[in-house]
Design a protein around this nucleic acid. Structure first.
Lengths: 151, 151
DNA sequence: CTTGACCTTCCCACGCTGGAAAGGTTCAGG
DNA sequence: CCTGAACCTTTCCAGCGTGGGAAGGTCAAG
């Protein structure tokens, strides 16, 4: 099996298969004399594992860990479960963020006429002064708040 | 106001402000003789607009369009609404994908003992043979990078 | 043998962000 | 007035995961 067949069989593009090999996620494939990569059933299985994990939104790093556990006959299922649950938590957080965004946007859109006139609560909200200000950047001299006290 | 102050005032890092300028999202800032960027109230407002739009998950391209509309006195609110609604639809799609993933993972985790033993339905499912195989040659995005809320 | 499909490597791009290097500017305090 | 800290400047490098393409080698069918 060449890389193209492996790609078709697993749903991962040849490009990505090479990339995964290069970055060490999967081991280097065997080669023919001429340099073609050759894939065997075992490799295909691994690739499928990777694809499914990616479909579930696992990061490459997590997949690496899962692959290690997958191959480890003496693994403890608790280790796997921990990874999975951590991932679920991360996904849920993202989902909440998305929900918030959607909620805000829907609210704004609902209050927007959507006609030929220029008045639009979406734009005016985005451009307004007072909405949570955020001060995440740490500075030594604390007085950056909007007035040029210097220069 | 220098770039550092602008960063503190808007919650966008100096690095990103320069990047936005470089890529043309925002106009080039005024400069002092010595080359320091100088920001005025108007610029700060624009930056805040950008940050809020990013917080709502808009892409840079969309923000560009919104900015143009924002500055256009004669815009039609319908145009804004269209962008917002399109974005909502995209976010909702991502949310559905996330929900599916979470559902699957929770189901798998629920059936995993999570003890010292190696048996684990999570791993065996990922590694199993038969799950929709097909030939999804172009499986684009199983959830790309765009769904992180900023900051 | 030719052709076309396939393979190889290598480099570029995207969006967004951070880090670091090497150097100039500004200003407060000694 | 000088020094040092904090700030600014540009430039380059890295990463995620993916795609695109160029330049070239290989293989199997006609």
């Amino acid at each position: 099996m060449n890389i193209g067949d492996a790609a078709a069989a697993t749903g991962i593009s040849a490009k990505m298969i090479r990339y995964y090999e290069e970055t060490g996620l999967i081991g280097a494939a065997l080669r023919t004399y001429s340099g073609y990569r050759v894939y065997q059933d075992k490799d295909i299985q691994t690739l499928r594992f990777v694809r499914r994990a990616r479909d579930l939104g696992f990061t490459v790093k997590q997949i690496e860990d899962l692959l290690t556990l997958w191959r480890d006959r003496s693994r403890a299922s608790a280790d796997v479960k921990t990874i999975a649950q951590g991932h679920v938590a991360a996904l849920q957080k993202k989902m909440l963020e998305l929900q918030e965004m959607i909620g805000t946007l829907e609210h704004l859109a609902r209050n927007c006429q959507g006609d030929h006139r220029p008045d639009c609560p979406i734009l005016s909200t985005l451009g307004s002064e007072g909405v949570q200000e955020a001060v995440p950047v740490k500075r030594k001299s604390a007085l950056g708040k909007g007035f040029e006290a210097r220069r």
